[in-house]
Write a protein that binds this DNA or RNA. Structure first.
Lengths: 241, 241
DNA sequence: TTGGCGCATTCTGCATACAGGGCACTTGTC
DNA sequence: GACAAGTGCCCTGTATGCAGAATGCGCCAA
C-alpha cells in the first residue's frame, strides 16, 4: 500500500539544495523552490512586522486571500504556521487575530533574548574562529558608516545582523534559530525604539564595546555589555509602547 | 464591508475564560472549548513523542485523517502548526516528515534548555513566593515517593513538572513557554534516558540538591545544580541515541 | 431615547473535488 | 541479466462548496 522509502536523502532536510554545475559558473545559487506555503508565511510575517496588519485586528481570510491571489486553503495553512510562531493568535470560532504585544510581553521577550544572546556570546568567545569574528567586525564597521550617514534603515539591518551573527558564532544552530525567531518578533518594536539621536548614539557606543569584547574573547565582559545593551534597549523601547 | 470591531475584549486573548457564577460553586473552571485544531495538534505531538509516528517517516495525510476521523484539511493545518514547532519537517512536493533529531540536535537543545532553566532559576530565587516554592517541594516529595516505589512513568511526570515549575516561578511567562516548548520536544528522549538504576539514582540526588537550593533562594547554587543536572542528563541520554 | 430581541449578512471551519507530480512497478531492449 | 523508458497508482497541493456560528444592524417596546 505504502510504497515510498522509509528514509529520504539527507539533502531533503530543510531547504532544497540542488546544485547545477556549469563550466562558466562553478558556484551556482541553490534553486529557491518557492512553495506557495513558504511565500505566504513570509508575506504574513512581513505584513505583521511592517504593521500592515494592525495588532489586535482580525485577519479576514476571504479578502486577504483574493488580494494575494490565493485561495483560502493555503492561506489558512500559512496562518496556522505563523500562529505557532506566536505572531498570530487563533481564537476559536473567530479566526486569526494579529497578536498585540503588551509592554510586559516585550519586556519578557527581551529578557529571554538577552539570556540567549549572553549564552551565545560566551560560547562565541570560546568557539568562534578569528575569521568569523573579523566578519562581524566588518559588519560593525559598515554599521558605523551607516550611522555616520544617518541611514537609519541600513543601520538597523546591520545591527540585527550583528546580533544574529553573535548567535550564529555560538556554534549552536538551535540556539541561533531560537534567538532569530525571538528577534524577528521584536523587529518592529526595536526599530521604532531607536528614534531620537541620543538613544541612537547610546546604542552605537554599546555596540562598539561589544565588538571589542568579542575580539578580545573576553566572555565575561561581552556578557556584561550584552546585558547592559539589551537592558537599555528596553529603556529605549518602553516609552514608545 | 468589514463590520467587526477593531479590537476585542482582552478576555478573548488566548484561551476562553468565560466564568459563570453560581451560589454553590464560586470558582468555575473555564469552559475548555476543544477545537478540532487544538485536538489534532495535541494528538500529532503525542504521536510523535510517543514514537507512534517514527522519526524520519512520512506522514500520509489520507490514511491518518481517516483513522483520526477527520478530513485532510484540518489535519493539514495541524501539521503545519506542529511543523512550525519543529517536530515536523515540510518537504516541498512530498508532504510532512517526522523530524529525526540527531544527537547533536539533542545536545544543542539541551544546552539551550539549560540556559533557559538557569535563567529561570535565578529569577525564581528572587521572585517566587514562599508558597510557590512550597508547592514545588510537595511535587518533589511526590516524585521521591514514586522513585521509592519505582513507578517510573509517574516519577517522570513529576520530574518534568518540577522543571516546568521552576520555569514558571521565574515570573516570566514567555520564558516559561519557551522552556516548555523545548522540554516537550525532548520529552521522549529524556524519558528513554533515565533507564538503569544508577542513572536514575543520580538524577534523584541532583533533584534533592535543586529543591534545597531553591528553598534557600541560593541562586548561584541553584544555577550550578541545574547546570550539572542537565549536563548529566546529556550524559545519561547520549548513549541511547 | 435607550435597551433588548430578531434577522440577515458574512465569516469561519470542515469536507470534498480536482489537477499535477512523484514513485514504484513493469516492460522492452541491449 | 541488467538497465532504461513507459505506465499507472497514489499522494500532495490548491480550489471550491456547504453548514454552522458569530456579528452587526434594524426594529420594537418600555
Amino acid at each position: 500500500m505504502l510504497h515510498w522509502p522509509r528514509r529520504f536523502r539527507a539533502s531533503w532536510g530543510g531547504n532544497v539544495d540542488v546544485r547545477v554545475e556549469t563550466p562558466d559558473q562553478p558556484a551556482i545559487v541553490p534553486i529557491s523552490r518557492h512553495t506557495l506555503h513558504g511565500e505566504l508565511v513570509e508575506r504574513l510575517r512581513d505584513m505583521i512586522i511592517e504593521g500592515r496588519l494592525a495588532p489586535g485586528s482580525r485577519i479576514n481570510e476571504g479578502p486577504l486571500g483574493t488580494s494575494l491571489g490565493v485561495s483560502r486553503t493555503p492561506l489558512r495553512e500559512a496562518i496556522k504556521f505563523v500562529a505557532s510562531e506566536g505572531l498570530i493568535e487563533l481564537v476559536p470560532g473567530r479566526g486569526a487575530v494579529v497578536k498585540a504585544m503588551t509592554p510586559n510581553d516585550v519586556r519578557e521577550m527581551l529578557q529571554v533574548l538577552t539570556g540567549l544572546e549572553v549564552m551565545a556570546g560566551r560560547l562565541a568567545c570560546l568557539a568562534a574562529s578569528a575569521g568569523q569574528i573579523a566578519e562581524l567586525r566588518v559588519l560593525h564597521n559598515a554599521m558605523m558608516a551607516f550611522y555616520a550617514s544617518r541611514n537609519r534603515l541600513e543601520y538597523y539591518k546591520c545591527n540585527q545582523a550583528i546580533h544574529t551573527g553573535i548567535a550564529r558564532l555560538s556554534g549552536n544552530a538551535f540556539l541561533a534559530a531560537q534567538h532569530e525567531a525571538i528577534q524577528s518578533r521584536l523587529k518592529r518594536i526595536r526599530f521604532l525604539g531607536n528614534e531620537g539621536p541620543s538613544k541612537w548614539a547610546g546604542a552605537v557606543a554599546e555596540h562598539e564595546d561589544m565588538i571589542i569584547a568579542l575580539e578580545a574573547r573576553d566572555k565575561d565582559r561581552l556578557a556584561a555589555v550584552l546585558t547592559a545593551h539589551l537592558e537599555r534597549t528596553w529603556d529605549r523601547v518602553c516609552d514608545t509602547l
